[in-house]
């Protein structure tokens, strides 16, 4: 039985293109994310007070924390997509994730009703940003993980989701004037939870099958 299986596998064995190293694949995904943001910036202007924000430590902590989390979570997810890599890779984005979410938690204004308050059109604009950037990046990440051999689907998919969420949140900070903590919380922790949750939902489809 096993001998017959071996012969059948040998019969269909064709040369395969070796998977590039995870860091290189993470770079490819981040390059795609950068391209997405560049295209997005053609149709959306930066938030009106971007220069002021760049001098605000808390904004920088949130924005850079989200972006760095995206980078490290992408590396971790793609590392875990290769059999034999340590589960400890999952810890890689934790420090920046902590910085990102702690910066969010230090906000003290929950609802903003002044000039910076988000109207319905602002909320719709934010949601459009989430979908326009998050969906293609999520699909790209899922394709890259499918090309690998995922053995720990839930953990890997959650990390992939956090990577997507990091990019989306950084984009929201750059393109939308979010000031009230409620929106900032939603656009950071909420989006991280959303994309990580979506990742876990599709996780069973990522598990490397016995045969493809």
């Amino acid at each position: 039985m096993t001998t017959a299986l071996i012969e059948s596998l040998v019969a269909v064995a064709v040369p395969v293109r070796r998977l590039p190293p995870p860091w290189l694949r993470a770079l490819q995904w981040l390059g795609f994310a950068a391209a997405m943001l560049a295209v997005f910036s053609l149709s959306h202007s930066f938030r009106y007070n971007i220069e002021h924000c760049l001098r605000a430590p808390l904004w920088l902590a949130m924005c850079v924390g989200a972006a760095m989390t995206a980078v490290l979570a992408a590396v971790a997810a793609l590392e875990l997509g290769v059999p034999g890599r340590s589960r400890r890779w999952a810890l890689l984005p934790m420090p920046t994730l902590a910085v990102w979410l702690c910066a969010v938690a230090t906000r003290d204004t929950w609802i903003d009703t002044g000039r910076d308050a988000l109207g319905w059109s602002g909320i719709a604009d934010c949601l459009a940003t989430v979908v326009l950037i998050g969906v293609p990046l999520g699909i790209a990440m899922a394709i890259m993980l499918r090309r690998a051999a995922v053995l720990q689907p839930a953990l890997t998919a959650a990390l992939g989701g956090v990577a997507v969420a990091g990019v989306v949140s950084a984009a929201l900070h750059v393109f939308h004037p979010l000031h009230a903590t409620l929106w900032i919380l939603l656009s950071n922790a909420g989006i991280a939870a959303l994309f990580a949750g979506l990742g876990v939902l599709i996780a069973p489809r990522l598990l490397v099958p016995a045969a493809r």
């Binding site: 395969v16 034999g84 053995l151 016995a210 045969a211």
Partner: peptide, 25 residues
Amino acid sequence: TLLTVHTARHTYDPARPFLPWLIAI
């Protein structure tokens, strides 16, 4: 496991040890 090795053989990097890759699968 042999079927999965077949499916995932493109993910093995010859620069890295073989047994951890196999045993993980």
